[in-house]
Amino acid sequence: MVIEFKSKPSILANGAVAGPLEKKSVFYSYFDSIVEDERWNEKTNEQGHSTMILDACDIVMKKANIKNLDVDFFLSGDLVNQMTPSNFAARELAISFIGLFSACATSVSSVIIASLLTELGASQLAIAGAASQHNAIEKQFRYPNYYGAKKPATAQWTVTAAGYALVGKHNPEYPSIVAATVGKVVDYGDTNPFHMGGAMAPAAYDTIVAHLKKRNQKFQDYDLIMTGDLGKIGLKILKAMFAQAGVTPEELQLLRDAGAEFYGEDQAFQAGASGAGCSAAVYFSYIIQQLKSGRFKRVLLCATGALLSPLSFQQGESIPCTAHAIELTME
């Protein structure tokens, strides 16, 4: 389903924070702050996760020179059980809050909801975004952090990062959200939790095709189409899908993936980065700054999410995936 925003809500401020390991990221210099302790000086990883979210929101509010009372809505999600890090951060922020779960696509689904609330006139200012903390997510979805299991080349590394955006009424000096696509849930029967890119690529394909079709656009209409965290192998698969559909190699160069690029060519991270914080931190730092500087005029951000749980995987279910997209322009 494609939504076209008549009021073109703008992203008035953005903030991204990351953990110590993310110094290795190629996007490192775009992040607002790096915290040396991956637990944000808290006792547990989950508390650190929550504090990281608060940290990112504080940066957003400082940049916009506002206080939490000025913000109407807080829309956030993460990957921990029942999203307690977001819930606990919302407790501290004391802003009207809706928790969202679209797995790693929450970075975009939260901005879509914020834009809708803005368009409706219900919200003057809303903070939207997502986060993930490596240790807490590994514990939840995979093995204990110190367990020695061999992950295949298709495995991705959950980032410790948070990215949040302040969505408000249209302002021509800031990047504006002109359209969005709420993705369907696509499932091609993949069951391997160490090959998320392969499971999610069809969802990204579905959403991008739907968006371009409804908006009557082509790849060349964009300076960049960036998916969330397909990783290196998932991105290759997505490109192959578009190539089969007749998209030329030149056009395909416009297609990039935040997860595939996040850690550069570092082999230790296998197929690249993943996690709700991955796309959020890249979109709400690097991408927004490139739009503001005028390097990009029109971008499509298509965050992908794998909607599985450890339980569903153990019960032998396949991995349903989704992808949500927003189209940002800079006048």
């Binding site: 390991l21 290795k24 991956e38 490596h134 240790n135 514990k139 952090n145 110190y146 230790a268």
Partner: peptide, 9 residues
């Protein structure tokens, strides 16, 4: 004694 940390290889 120990606390889990997320170290990449």
């Amino acid at each position: 004694i120990f606390k889990p940390k997320g170290k990449a290889n």
